[in-house]
Design a protein around this nucleic acid. Structure first.
Lengths: 203, 203
DNA sequence: GTCTATATAACGATAGAC
DNA sequence: GTCTATCGTTATATAGAC
């Protein structure tokens, strides 16, 4: 039977879930096998080692992220729409896979070298069109003086923090799952205005 | 010889560094022993198990954080000064221990239950004076309509993201250590204005 | 391709001499 | 209190039958 493709994907998906939940060192090959409801030795048959299985997951999951943000930054939309689209993009990812951003942050901090190697392999080209647009807008007086890098970090930070800090936010504000979801839905609507106000953007 | 206190602190400090670098599962007792330049069995003599050693580090390091932010939120300063002080407080922590915030974020995501137990033991009282102040300011029209929780998440997110995303920021923007430090110093100065603009604060 | 059984190594933890 | 030696477990990984 030609089950190869199917089984490999089954293992990959199980590995993704377990690695995203427990991190590289916390994950156990047996847990991944259980999650996939398959024999443990199959993991080695298809991916040889834990490290290679992880690399597969890492590359694919990280790969979902960078191209999207780079394309948004380099698009020819006006600045205000761009801000809104970046925020929308993050909230889109969150709906399809809420553990993706925490996974990236956790692994980046526990293994910075792996992250740098990944980025080096992709060679994203900074500065982007976004940087030019911000500088132009500052020169024209359309927004307050600010470096593009500072603005981008503020946008990304205020956008993704409630994903990576979900436990903190929910615990301190005493949110159940529904309250958290409502909080995030409100946030998606309000954040673009918040950011554009911050730089005194005049439409 | 009464070396007990000294050795215990030596081990604790080494454990703190290794746990903050590698996380709970990534850390090895042997690595901690090497870091402290001491025999591995001493770790068990003073702290019994890896889990108890970690709990000591966790409780102490987490404990540095919550009281500071709660006191700031509950103080009687005006809102604009409060925003500035929160940002200053984070940057103060960063100077004394740049790995503290990443450590909290990583461990909170890999072990949410441990985090919730910690918070439950501390019982911080929300809502705070900050929440009242935001609601008053909205009512008086001093700032745009915004929920205190949303504002707080935006402040904290834009403030701490460059700590937990240092590797990302440095890699993408091609920063060396000096450039990163300069970026953070600039950020500390600019962020209060950025936030107060965002809510249309009129002084 | 899939299973069972097992090799091999690493890790946390302890016993016991000093 | 500090060391060496070692135990017991658990993890990754492989060998080999089917």
């Amino acid at each position: 039977m030609e089950e190869k493709q199917e089984t490999e994907e089954l293992i990959f998906e199980a590995a993704r879930r377990v690695f995203q939940r427990d991190g590289y060192y916390g994950a156990r090959m047996q847990d991944i096998a259980d999650e996939a409801d398959i024999n443990k030795s199959m993991l080695h048959y298809y991916f040889r080692s834990k490290d290679q299985l992880f690399q597969n997951v890492y590359q694919k999951e990280m790969g979902k992220f960078l191209p999207v943000i780079m394309e948004l930054l380099n698009s020819e939309q006006p600045l205000d729409q761009k801000v809104e689209n970046i925020i929308d993009a993050y909230y889109g990812h969150w709906n399809s896979n809420p553990k993706l951003i925490p996974f990236i942050i956790v692994e980046m901090n526990l293994n910075p070298e792996r992250f740098r190697d990944f980025i080096k392999g992709k060679k994203p080209d900074f500065p982007t069109r976004f940087d030019e647009q911000v500088k132009e807008a500052v020169k024209k007086g359309e927004i307050m003086p600010i470096e593009p890098e500072q603005l981008l970090v503020s946008i990304v930070g205020s956008t993704i923090f409630p994903f990576i800090g979900k436990t903190m936010v929910s615990t301190l504000f005493d949110f159940d799952e529904d309250s958290y979801q409502q909080f995030m839905a409100d946030r998606k609507e309000q954040l673009p205005t918040f950011i554009l106000n911050a730089i005194n953007y005049k439409q």
